[in-house]
Simulated assay, not measured.
Amino acid sequence: MRWTVHSEKPLYTDRWLDVRIADVEISGGRRLDHRLLRTSPAAGAVVLNGADEVLLEWRHRFITDTWAYEIPMGGVEPGESPRKAAAREVEEETGWRPGPLRPLLCLHPSPGISDSEHHVFFADSAERVGDPAEDWEAERIEWVPLADVPALVADRKVVSGTSMAALLRVYGVGRPV
C-alpha cells in the first residue's frame, strides 16, 4: 500500500541535513507523524588495480564507535555530476586519481527514514597524485585484495552498507562492462 503524505515540515536544516516531520496516512485511514531525513546525493567509487586489489580507507565512525574499511565517498556539490563527485572524492580522500569511472550501482541505504541516494562508480585503475587533501578522513589508505572482501564483511571490518553492497557487487558479479 502506498502511504499518503498530507504535509511535511522542517524540524532542523543545515547544509548537510534536513530533518523533517511528515503527516502520513497509512492503511485503514490511520495517520501518524513520521520523522525523515532529506540529504543531498553522495557519490563514491570502487577502485581496483592490476593486482585485483581495491582502494579502501580504514576509518573510525564516532556515531557507531566502529573502525572499518570504506570505499571513498562524499557529497555531490550543487551543479556537479555524481561521476565528477566520485572522482573528486576518491582523489581528495585517498590521493589517488581514479581511471575512467563506470556506473556500478545506485542505492538508497535507509529508505525507511531517509531519501539519501548513493551513486557508486567503478574504475579499474588509479594514479597516485599525492597525499589525501585532509588528514581526518581516514587513519590509513590501503590496497586490499578483492578476494578478502567476504572475510572482511564476516569479521565486521566492512560495516558501511554502501561500501558493503558495492564491494560485494564487484566481488560476486565482477567488473561492470
Score class of each variant (00 low, 15 high):
23 D>H: 07
110 S>M: 11
172 G>C: 05
41 P>M: 04
170 V>E: 02
153 V>N: 03
102 R>G: 02
80 E>N: 07
92 E>D: 12
82 P>G: 04
54 V>Q: 01
8 E>Q: 15
87 A>H: 09
51 A>N: 07
160 S>I: 00
81 S>H: 06
139 E>G: 11
66 T>A: 15
47 V>P: 05
151 A>D: 11
27 S>I: 07
114 S>E: 00
35 R>T: 04
167 L>H: 03
78 P>C: 02
20 R>Q: 15
117 E>P: 00
105 L>C: 06
146 L>N: 02
22 A>F: 00
106 C>Q: 12
135 D>S: 12
111 P>F: 10
124 D>V: 08
28 G>L: 01
45 A>Y: 05
130 G>N: 10
3 W>Y: 10
105 L>A: 06
107 L>H: 01
28 G>S: 00
36 L>G: 12
41 P>A: 08
97 R>Q: 15
74 G>A: 06
158 V>H: 03
2 R>Y: 05
87 A>P: 08
30 R>N: 06
165 A>G: 01
58 W>M: 09
131 D>P: 07
36 L>A: 06
89 E>R: 13
176 P>Q: 09
75 G>A: 15
62 F>L: 11
108 H>I: 03
130 G>F: 09
130 G>I: 12
119 H>N: 07
152 L>M: 03
14 D>T: 11
15 R>M: 09
142 E>D: 14
19 V>R: 07
19 V>G: 01
78 P>Y: 02
113 I>E: 11
145 P>A: 02
13 T>Y: 02
49 N>C: 13
65 D>N: 15
165 A>V: 05
24 V>T: 07
14 D>Y: 12
51 A>I: 00
56 L>M: 08
73 M>I: 10
172 G>D: 07
114 S>I: 01
32 L>K: 13
121 F>P: 01
113 I>D: 06
177 V>H: 03
90 V>R: 10
58 W>N: 06
80 E>I: 05
68 A>M: 10
141 I>H: 11
164 M>P: 01
28 G>H: 00
23 D>M: 03
171 Y>C: 03
21 I>A: 13
119 H>Q: 03
107 L>M: 10
168 L>W: 00
163 S>H: 04
103 P>H: 13
38 R>S: 14
156 R>Y: 05
174 G>P: 10
58 W>E: 08
124 D>I: 07
